[in-house]
């Protein structure tokens, strides 16, 4: 029986408890999981597939699989790794069958950027940040798929190498190699960025 000490009263419900509740048919628990992780899953799918409709389909497939499989989740990995594992499979399947032409995030009307500058933020800094992100999206679109996937999981989503390897079905060493090559290529692209 663990743990002996309860969480603070205002602590958020842990992800694994939300999955267990979703496994019991609790829609609100699953909605909370999607609120926590949906944006990251979409961010990954959108940049791996190069099309907003394909990304939507892939995230929908992944979340449907997660909903259907929640009862069987036993906590062998973190919920986030479990969700990204499902998402990566859906992305691979979609990439094999897609018929749409890839469109970089920065030029896709489905991804129109309307981020308002936060109150008190320097507009110049906000513009710089937006441009930097757009430049990264363009550079990522030119990377080979495995390098892009490793970069997104480790550098953007903050996943440990071991978890990224599990998601991608490869080894820790392979993830490290993919990241080194991605960083070299992306770094060179940013040397000439103005």
């Amino acid at each position: 029986m663990t743990p002996a000490v309860p969480a603070p009263p205002d602590a958020p419900v842990p992800d694994d408890e939300l999955v267990a509740r979703a496994g019991l048919g609790d829609h609100a628990a699953f909605a909370e999981l999607v609120a926590r992780h949906g944006a990251a899953l979409y961010r990954y799918a959108r940049r791996m597939l190069g099309s907003a409709p394909d990304a939507e389909d892939a995230v929908q497939d992944a979340l449907t699989a997660a909903w259907l499989g929640a009862e069987g989740f036993r906590g062998a990995s973190s919920v986030r790794t479990w969700l990204f594992g499902i998402q990566a499979n859906c992305v691979r399947r979609a990439a094999r069958t897609r018929t749409r032409t890839p469109v970089p995030v920065t030029t896709d009307p489905d991804d129109e950027r309307t981020d308002p500058a936060p109150a008190g933020d320097d507009p110049v800094e906000h513009l710089l940040a937006t441009d930097l992100r757009a430049a990264l999206d363009l550079a990522l679109a030119d990377l080979p798929g495995p390098q892009r996937a490793a970069w997104l999981l480790v550098e953007v989503e903050g996943m440990p190498y071991a978890d990224a390897a599990q998601v991608l079905g490869t080894t820790h060493a392979a993830v490290r190699g993919l990241l080194e090559r991605a960083r070299r290529t992306l770094g060179r692209r940013f040397e000439t960025w103005r």
Partner: peptide, 20 residues
């Protein structure tokens, strides 16, 4: 280039796509 790349990556890390 690496410094700018780190900045750009940090921006993407906190970004939510409008598409989503």
């Amino acid at each position: 280039g690496d410094d700018l790349l780190d900045l750009a990556t940090a921006q993407l890390r906190t970004h939510t796509d409008d598409g989503w």
